[in-house]
Protein backbone atom coordinates (compact mmCIF):
# COMPACT_ATOMS: atom_id res chain seq x y z
CA UNK A 1 0.00 0.00 0.00
CA UNK A 2 1.46 3.31 -1.04
CA UNK A 3 1.65 5.94 1.63
CA UNK A 4 1.07 9.61 1.20
CA UNK A 5 4.11 11.87 1.35
CA UNK A 6 3.84 15.54 2.26
CA UNK A 7 6.76 17.98 2.04
CA UNK A 8 6.31 21.51 3.35
CA UNK A 9 8.16 24.66 2.39
CA UNK A 10 7.52 28.33 2.98
CA UNK A 11 8.48 30.81 0.30
CA UNK A 12 7.72 34.56 0.35
CA UNK A 13 4.59 34.13 2.45
CA UNK A 14 3.39 31.18 0.39
CA UNK A 15 3.07 27.69 1.74
CA UNK A 16 4.34 25.11 -0.71
CA UNK A 17 3.05 21.60 -0.20
CA UNK A 18 4.38 18.74 -2.26
CA UNK A 19 2.15 15.70 -2.01
CA UNK A 20 2.84 12.29 -3.49
CA UNK A 21 1.42 8.79 -3.43
CA UNK A 22 -2.23 8.01 -2.80
CA UNK A 23 -4.68 10.36 -1.15
CA UNK A 24 -7.51 8.25 0.24
CA UNK A 25 -9.67 8.01 3.35
CA UNK A 26 -6.81 6.99 5.64
CA UNK A 27 -4.09 9.29 4.29
CA UNK A 28 -6.33 12.30 3.89
CA UNK A 29 -6.25 12.70 7.68
CA UNK A 30 -2.53 13.56 7.45
CA UNK A 31 -3.10 16.19 4.77
CA UNK A 32 -6.00 17.57 6.74
CA UNK A 33 -3.73 17.98 9.77
CA UNK A 34 -1.06 19.78 7.74
CA UNK A 35 -3.50 22.22 6.15
CA UNK A 36 -5.32 22.79 9.40
CA UNK A 37 -2.16 23.76 11.25
CA UNK A 38 -1.12 25.98 8.34
CA UNK A 39 -4.39 27.88 8.66
CA UNK A 40 -3.84 28.20 12.37
CA UNK A 41 -0.46 29.81 11.60
CA UNK A 42 -2.33 32.17 9.31
CA UNK A 43 -0.80 30.73 6.16
CA UNK A 44 -3.71 31.19 3.82
CA UNK A 45 -1.99 31.15 0.47
CA UNK A 46 -1.24 27.58 -0.36
CA UNK A 47 0.38 26.02 -3.40
CA UNK A 48 0.01 22.29 -3.82
CA UNK A 49 2.42 20.44 -6.06
CA UNK A 50 0.63 17.26 -7.14
CA UNK A 51 3.43 15.95 -9.35
CA UNK A 52 3.73 12.61 -7.59
CA UNK A 53 0.09 12.25 -6.64
CA UNK A 54 -1.12 9.11 -8.41
CA UNK A 55 -4.56 8.62 -6.91
CA UNK A 56 -7.14 10.70 -5.13
CA UNK A 57 -10.35 9.31 -3.63
CA UNK A 58 -13.50 11.15 -2.71
CA UNK A 59 -12.29 11.45 0.88
CA UNK A 60 -9.13 13.05 -0.54
CA UNK A 61 -11.21 15.64 -2.35
CA UNK A 62 -13.04 16.15 0.90
CA UNK A 63 -9.93 17.73 2.39
CA UNK A 64 -9.70 20.36 -0.37
CA UNK A 65 -13.46 20.87 -0.38
CA UNK A 66 -13.55 21.47 3.36
CA UNK A 67 -10.96 24.24 3.18
CA UNK A 68 -12.21 25.99 0.06
CA UNK A 69 -14.88 27.77 2.09
CA UNK A 70 -12.51 28.58 4.98
CA UNK A 71 -9.90 30.04 2.66
CA UNK A 72 -12.40 32.02 0.64
CA UNK A 73 -13.77 33.57 3.82
CA UNK A 74 -10.27 34.70 4.78
CA UNK A 75 -9.28 35.88 1.32
CA UNK A 76 -6.78 33.13 0.88
CA UNK A 77 -6.58 30.50 -1.83
CA UNK A 78 -5.42 27.11 -2.97
CA UNK A 79 -3.54 26.68 -6.19
CA UNK A 80 -2.87 23.16 -7.43
CA UNK A 81 -0.33 22.45 -10.12
CA UNK A 82 1.52 19.65 -11.87
CA UNK A 83 -1.56 17.41 -11.79
CA UNK A 84 -1.26 14.21 -13.75
CA UNK A 85 -4.02 13.44 -16.19
CA UNK A 86 -5.84 10.91 -14.05
CA UNK A 87 -6.05 13.19 -11.08
CA UNK A 88 -6.97 16.18 -13.23
CA UNK A 89 -9.80 14.24 -14.89
CA UNK A 90 -11.25 13.36 -11.51
CA UNK A 91 -11.08 17.02 -10.44
CA UNK A 92 -12.83 17.91 -13.62
CA UNK A 93 -15.63 15.38 -13.26
CA UNK A 94 -16.32 16.68 -9.78
CA UNK A 95 -16.46 20.23 -11.14
CA UNK A 96 -13.63 21.34 -8.89
CA UNK A 97 -11.67 22.69 -11.86
CA UNK A 98 -13.99 25.69 -11.80
CA UNK A 99 -13.60 26.19 -8.11
CA UNK A 100 -9.97 25.50 -7.36
CA UNK A 101 -7.20 27.26 -9.18
CA UNK A 102 -5.35 24.73 -11.21
CA UNK A 103 -2.08 25.66 -12.89
CA UNK A 104 0.20 23.82 -15.25
CA UNK A 105 3.44 24.54 -13.42
CA UNK A 106 4.95 26.31 -10.44
CA UNK A 107 5.58 29.57 -12.31
CA UNK A 108 1.99 29.78 -13.41
CA UNK A 109 0.80 28.81 -9.97
CA UNK A 110 2.78 31.60 -8.33
CA UNK A 111 1.39 34.12 -10.74
CA UNK A 112 -2.02 33.69 -9.11
CA UNK A 113 -0.62 35.28 -5.99
CA UNK A 114 1.14 38.16 -7.70
Amino acid sequence: MKKLTIDQNTEEGLLLLKIGGELDASTSIDLDGVINSALEDNKINILVNCKDLVYISSAGFGVFVSYIRDLAARNGKFVLYNLNKNVYDTFKILGLDDLLLIAKNEREAKSYFA
Binding site: F61, V65, L94, G95, L96, D98, L99
Partner: peptide, 15 residues
Protein backbone atom coordinates in the same frame (compact mmCIF):
# COMPACT_ATOMS: atom_id res chain seq x y z
CA UNK B 1 -21.30 20.37 -12.98
CA UNK B 2 -20.19 20.74 -9.39
CA UNK B 3 -20.68 18.27 -6.51
CA UNK B 4 -23.22 19.04 -3.78
CA UNK B 5 -22.08 20.38 -0.45
CA UNK B 6 -18.93 21.94 -1.85
CA UNK B 7 -20.40 25.41 -2.01
CA UNK B 8 -22.93 25.87 0.71
CA UNK B 9 -24.68 29.10 -0.20
CA UNK B 10 -26.80 30.59 -2.95
CA UNK B 11 -23.79 31.05 -5.20
CA UNK B 12 -24.02 27.33 -5.95
CA UNK B 13 -26.64 28.15 -8.55
CA UNK B 14 -23.87 29.62 -10.71
CA UNK B 15 -22.39 26.18 -11.09
Amino acid sequence: GLGLGIIRNKSYSKY
